[in-house]
């Protein structure tokens, strides 16, 4: 994914901090799209669990609006932000709505829906994701006419397949061709998914090679992907990568939290291996 060195919270449209009631009010109205956009983001950021918030966000998935490049507003901005928020709220009730969004003509909305379905661990998304990627790098992974975007949002979909955790050979067979995609960010996402699903170090080695890529954007993505996979042999290469400490810290957090194979599913313990990871993190603060 395209990674920013760090996230600075956007300032609310009205200036003052808002509360849940205000966010719900803004999302409920439909006159002011930027207020809805902010409200959707806010509810996700605050991990709001109010049932009304879930219902309003699901409803917002069907909202359509044109892109306004000059105002920095993306196509279907409210729907996309609602899809992103639903991934953070952990409510399975949102899954059918997100599956519908995964079939939308807007690839940006499909992208947001794919990520969120992955975050929610929605096994129902496995088949549609595989179906959309099955045509491989040459079709699903081909660039759209007059756009830098691909036919399918491959990175998000590959990441989602990795997150869903199904390592049947038919799933791996859909992902594997993308490790040869011409774009390094897609290769990185494919290796991440395969590393998560198989634990096979050859995918980890390919991610390590991307940490030396001449483009900073690629190095950042490989850092995030190694963190997501929690592949601990990457500790030293991550420490040496020419990238912002913020991203290295996020990657190392991933190694700590996702990377204790002996303890899969159990909270990481403070063993020597973990203590060594924390020492490297301390040095990056």
């Amino acid at each position: 994914m395209v990674v920013a060195p760090e996230t600075i919270d956007p300032s609310p449209a009205a200036g003052a901090p808002i509360d849940e009631a205000e966010a719900l009010r803004r999302l409920r109205q439909s006159e002011d799209l930027s207020a809805q956009y902010y409200a959707a983001w806010w509810l996700g950021r605050m991990r709001c669990s109010n049932p009304e918030a879930i219902a309003l966000l699901c409803h917002a998935l069907s909202q359509r609006q044109p892109r306004q490049a000059e105002a920095g507003v993306e196509h279907n901005a409210v729907a996309r932000n609602a899809a992103r928020a639903l991934g953070k709220l952990g409510q399975p009730g949102a899954i059918p709505h997100l599956l519908q969004a995964l079939a939308d003509p807007d690839d940006g909305l499909r992208e947001a829906a794919a990520r969120s379905l992955g975050e929610l661990g929605a096994s129902e998304a496995l088949e549609p994701l595989c179906a959309r990627l099955a045509s491989g790098p040459g079709v699903a992974g081909a660039a759209q006419l007059e756009s830098s975007r691909l036919q399918e949002p491959c990175e998000a979909m590959l990441e989602a397949l990795g997150a869903l955790g199904n390592s049947e050979s038919r799933v791996l067979a859909v992902i594997e061709p993308f490790v040869d995609h011409e774009r390094p960010l897609i290769r990185s996402a494919a290796c991440r998914a395969l590393l998560q699903l198989t634990g096979d170090s050859r995918w980890g080695e390919q991610l390590l090679a991307l940490l030396d890529h001449p483009q900073l954007q690629v190095r950042r993505a490989a850092l995030m992907d190694l963190g997501a996979a929690g592949w601990r042999p990457a500790l030293e290469p991550i420490r040496r990568t020419l990238a912002e400490n913020s991203l290295k810290l996020m990657a190392l957090r991933g190694l700590v939290e996702n990377g204790d194979p002996a303890q899969a599913g159990v909270a990481t313990r403070l063993d020597d291996d973990t203590t060594a990871l924390l020492a490297v993190m301390d040095d990056l603060l």
Partner: peptide
């Protein structure tokens, strides 16, 4: 909320 923060604090207390 964040496991790595809990672990770091645990290490500090040790």
């Amino acid at each position: 909320d964040t496991p790595v923060v809990r672990l770091r604090a645990e290490l500090a207390l040790e």
